[in-house]
């Protein structure tokens, strides 16, 4: 009962907070803007990736981390001590309740905006060719982004518990997160870098539930042959043009995308962050 009570109380408090309401409105507005500006020129998979990009990289990363940092640092930690920890509640229940509340809220805000956006993109008739987005791909992409959000909340929680000062924790997260993200992106590690993950999302969005390896090889072979033919025809009698630079969401290097590796790449650090935050929270004085 205490865990549920803390979860409900925190969730209600977060829902009532101005920051969360403004964030919800801003996510909806940004998603709408991104969809409208790319409506007639970007195929479905990259467009969904564009809509999901703010959750993975910028700017919602900041909001999510701040939400994670908040309850275990600064005056909110004192309030937690006076409100919950001096009652017959274990520290585990308290930490889990506040973490879950933030996770549910972040996922709620994300899904409320991202699910309708993805549905509109997939089902609406648009003047762009169908690029084979699958139902499984949409669900998997949504899940992966949700997992990254869980990691962000957990990292915020860990830093808030370790450093105890909200501003310091946010500053450290910012200074560590982006450089690390960029380094990992340089190696195209979608398992660890949300920037690379956002680039690989179109690949995931087009993945079917179960692939037929033979059909896939044939398909790739056909595509390659067709591409070569087109290139030969187009270059016949014309001056040679430099190859077109691929867009941010049209990278070919994520064709070997593995959902399992990505889930483990973000899932294990999430679990480690929570475990470490629990240990720190348990030995901490209030």
């Amino acid at each position: 009962m205490p865990l549920r009570a803390i979860l409900q109380h925190d969730l209600w408090g977060l829902y009532q907070s101005r920051m969360v309401r403004v964030w919800l409105a801003a996510t909806a507005l940004l998603a709408a803007l991104l969809m409208m500006t790319n409506w007639v020129k970007v195929p479905s998979a990259p467009l969904i990736a564009i809509v999901l990009f703010p959750y993975l990289v910028f700017p919602w990363f900041l909001v999510v981390m701040m939400l994670g940092v908040n309850p275990t640092s600064g005056s909110r930690a004192d309030a937690m001590a006076d409100g919950f920890l001096c009652r017959p509640v274990t520290r585990y229940e308290c930490l889990l309740g506040t973490w879950l509340a933030r996770l549910v809220l972040v996922w709620g805000v994300y899904l409320v905006v991202a699910v309708p956006a993805a549905a509109i993109i997939v089902f609406a008739k648009r003047p762009v060719p169908d690029d084979g987005v699958t139902f499984y791909g949409v669900i998997a992409a949504m899940g992966v982004v949700g997992l990254v959000l869980a990691l962000q909340v957990s990292l915020g929680f860990l830093m808030g518990t370790l450093l105890r000062r909200s501003l310091l924790a946010v500053a450290v997260l910012l200074l560590a997160w982006y450089p690390l993200n960029l380094v990992l992106h340089a190696f195209s590690l979608e398992e660890f870098s949300p920037i690379s993950l956002s680039q690989s999302l179109p690949t995931l969005l087009r993945q079917p539930w179960q692939e037929d390896p033979a059909a896939e090889t044939a398909k790739v072979g056909d595509l390659e042959a067709m591409q070569k033919t087109i290139e030969w025809i187009s270059s016949f009698g014309a001056p040679s043009k430099p190859p077109a630079k691929p867009g941010f969401f049209e990278q070919a290097e994520y064709e070997d995308f593995s959902l399992l590796s990505v889930l483990m790449g973000y899932g294990i650090p999430t679990l480690l962050s929570i475990a470490l935050a629990t240990v720190c929270f348990n030995v901490r004085d209030f």
Partner: peptide, 15 residues
């Protein structure tokens, strides 16, 4: 132990 105690802090930081 805390089930046996009713605690009032100096300046209660209530929600």
């Amino acid at each position: 132990v805390r089930r046996l105690i009713g605690y009032l802090p100096t300046h209660p930081n209530l929600p």
